[in-house]
Design a protein around this nucleic acid. Structure first.
Lengths: 217, 217
DNA sequence: GCGACAGACTTACAGCGTACATTGCAACGT
DNA sequence: ACGTTGCAATGTACGCTGTAAGTCTGTCGC
C-alpha cells in the first residue's frame, strides 16, 4: 500500500512544482523538461495530467490567485478593498512571474472566479450600481497588476536608488531631458526617494470611488 | 549608383519590418527567421544590425512610444494629460503586442525618455512637487498600460458581449458565484454593457490629482 | 491467473535564438 | 589597374523548446 516506487504524479503536484520552479528560477526557466526532472519524471508524463503548457500556466495562476485573502463584505468597504489590494500585491511580489501571466491571459479557474465574486460583492454591498461596480473593479485591478509589473521589472534595489540615479545622470543631459535630469539629481542627492508608492494611487482611486458613491445617493 | 541588388539592410528597416510583422501576425510569429524572410535575407544577417532579439524588441517599443503625441505644458494640465492618455491608448491598440513589451522590460530609448520628460514637465509646470509628480506619473501609466493589456486580452468583441455573457452563464451558478452570475445576467439581458470604460478610471485619477494639487497650495 | 487500462516512457520533429566560421563585394591607397 | 582591407550577408551547427505518436509496464477488478 505504501509501495509504488513509481512517482505518484498528479495535476496538483505538477502545478505546485511548477510554481516553486518559477518562483526560484523565473518563468523562462520553466520548461516542460526542467519541470519534469524536478519531479523525477520524463517530460511527456506531464501531459497525462495537463493538456499543454498553457493549461499548466493557467493552473499556476489560479492557485496563486487562491492565495489572495478575499474581501468580506458587510463592514467598511474601503478598508476591505484596501486589504484586498494589499494582499493581492503581496502575493504578486511573492510570485514575481504571476502578474505577467495574469494580465496576458484570461484565467477562469475556481479561485479566480471566487476572487472576483467576492470583490463584486464588496462593491455591491457598499451600494455601488452594477455599472459602477464593474468599472471600479477594473480600475482597481488595472492599477494593482500594473503596479506589480512595474515593481517587478524595476532593475535596482531600493537601497541603491540614489547611487543608481547618480550613475544614470550622465545619460540624461539637462539640455535634452531637463526634467528627467533634475528628477534624477534629486534622487541621487537623496532629496527625493525613488520609491514606488502603492498606497498613493490606490487611495486616489478609493477616494474617487467614495465621492462617486456619495454623489449617487 | 542605384545598383546594389544586395538588400540594403539597416537597423531602422529591420525594426519597422518587425513592427509590421508583429502588428499583422502577433508577437509569437515574430521570430528572427520569419523576420529575415520578410526582408529577403537570412536570419543571421539581422545580427549585423541588432545585438540580439531583446534589443530588437526594445527598439520596436521605442519606435512605437515615439508615435504617442507628447503633452505640451503651459496650458491646462488636466487636458494635456487626458490627451496624452488617449494618444497612448490608441497607439497601444494599434500595436496590440506593445503594452506587454512595455511593462515587461525597461526601455530607455530616446523616444521613451522624451515621452517621460514631457510628462514630468506637464506635471511640474502644473505645480506638483517632485514627489507628487513621480507618483502621479506612475499611477497614470500603470492605469494606461493595465487597461490596454486588459482590453487586448479580452476574448470577445463588444457587439458580442450579450451573447457571450449568456453563453457563459451556465458556468457561473448563482449558488457558487452569486454576484458574477447576476452581473452576467445583466450583461446578457442588455441591462449592463460590458464595455470597458477607459475614461472612468482616468478621470478618477485626474480628479484625485487635482484635489491633491489644491490641498497643497 | 488474466485482461484491461491508466500512466510513465521513448522517440521524433519542427521550430527557436544565436555562436562561429566563411564568403562576396565595394571602396581605398598606391 | 591592383592588391588590401573591412563590413555585411551567409552557411552551418548546437542546444533548447513544446508536443504528436507509439510503446511499455505496473496495478487492479474479475
Amino acid at each position: 500500500m505504501p509501495s509504488s516506487r513509481r512517482a505518484p504524479l498528479s495535476r496538483d503536484r505538477i502545478l505546485r512544482a511548477a510554481i516553486k520552479l518559477a518562483d526560484r528560477h523565473g518563468l523562462d526557466a520553466l520548461s516542460m523538461r526542467k519541470l519534469a526532472t524536478t519531479l523525477k519524471v520524463e517530460a511527456m508524463s506531464l501531459y497525462n495530467h495537463v493538456a499543454n503548457k498553457d493549461e499548466l500556466l493557467d493552473g499556476m495562476v489560479d492557485i496563486v490567485i487562491g492565495e489572495i485573502t478575499r474581501p468580506t463584505c458587510g463592514g467598511d468597504w474601503k478598508a476591505a478593498l484596501r486589504a484586498r489590494a494589499a494582499s493581492a500585491l503581496s502575493v504578486m511580489m511573492a510570485h514575481p512571474w504571476a502578474p505577467m501571466l495574469v494580465v496576458s491571459r484570461i484565467v477562469v479557474g475556481p479561485n479566480m472566479l471566487a476572487y472576483i465574486d467576492a470583490t463584486l460583492a464588496t462593491l455591491r454591498e457598499a451600494g455601488f450600481s452594477w455599472h459602477d461596480t464593474d468599472r471600479a473593479w477594473n480600475t482597481m485591478d488595472n492599477y494593482i497588476y500594473g503596479f506589480a509589473l512595474q515593481q517587478q521589472n524595476f532593475p535596482v534595489d531600493p537601497e541603491e536608488y540614489a547611487s543608481a540615479a547618480a550613475a544614470y545622470l550622465p545619460m540624461l543631459p539637462a539640455s535634452v531631458y531637463p526634467y528627467m535630469h533634475e528628477m534624477s539629481k534629486h534622487v541621487a542627492e537623496g532629496t527625493l526617494d525613488g520609491t514606488h508608492d502603492f498606497a498613493f494611487g490606490l487611495e486616489l482611486i478609493l477616494d474617487g470611488l467614495e465621492r462617486l458613491r456619495h454623489a449617487r445617493t
